[in-house]
Write a protein that binds this DNA or RNA. Structure first.
Lengths: 145, 145
DNA sequence: CTTGCCTCTGACGTCAACGTCAGGTTTTAG
DNA sequence: CTAAAACCTGACGTTGACGTCAGAGGCAAG
């Protein structure tokens, strides 16, 4: 398929796909006239790239991880890299969970005026109290909100 | 305390604190000479701000949420806002969990060459399989990695 | 053949959360 | 009292993941 269809099917922009190629995350077969052609598997790959971006990885990091995802290179360094990134994501989840619990507490305390503070919802507020909010990983970042 | 101490205690830069004030997230009492002075509670507040930034909220969104966190304003709109952001964070956690599981799968498949694919670690790979990877919330973002 | 849509390669624009520098005032240490 | 350290207000620089525009070529249909 050509780049427009891949964009539509994977839910990203054409520009983004060209950017991914520029960053070495995505390769394309070129026709004689220079147009990019992708196999079906590219859809999945693009979605994986999106997942990793959403997890806060940079394109450079993704570029380092993807070869050992697809081609199963599995050098000791790449495996260490995988573990490190997985742990980073774990820490990120822990931090988000803490934030979520804090928001829940806020919701409960500023709760509907007629009710007190006794809530049903300590649902999972006690679970996940691990680590910290990954205090080294600054990330600017937009957010549609 | 003055801005330098607050910076040291909350783990952010002086510049960041002035930026927060500029964005209406943090207020300071000014001395006669114009220097900022903060109460102890500012440390906690700054850390909360950091948590929300880390959760992907923009300063504008944080500015809208913080009043009802501190002053317990609790208008219906602010409560709706709180719920919405909490749900966003939930979705983000779900997405990250999916990403984490995918990385785990990769780790398992490209596992140490001498062992097969039978792992001890389906640890929590089956838990948390909710929602999707919040396909609307694009966020660029650095990451030290 | 030509009309309309898709694609190509640059190249500059954007946005958020700060970093950093300049030039001046204030507070603190000796 | 004086020098160092901390603080002030602008104001411009940075970074990453794209958006957007310009100008030129490719491709199937009528």
């Amino acid at each position: 398929m050509r780049i427009g269809e891949l964009a539509a099917r994977s839910g990203v922009s054409v520009r983004a796909l060209r950017y991914y190629e520029e960053q070495g995350l995505l390769e394309a077969n070129r026709s004689d006239s220079g147009q990019r052609h992708y196999p079906e598997s590219a859809v999945d790959r693009v979605q994986l790239i999106q997942m990793l971006y959403a997890a806060g990885l940079s394109s450079r990091t993704i570029a380092e991880l993807l070869p050992c995802v697809e081609a199963k290179v599995s050098t000791p360094e790449s495996r260490a890299r995988l573990f490190a990134e997985r742990d980073r994501i774990d820490a990120q989840i822990a931090g988000l969970t803490r934030t979520r619990n804090r928001l829940d507490a806020v919701i409960a305390s500023s709760g509907s005026p007629d009710s007190g503070c006794t809530w049903i919802a300590d649902r999972d507020a006690a679970a996940h109290v691990s680590h910290f909010a990954t205090p080294g990983s600054r990330r600017p970042g937009r957010a549609l909100s």
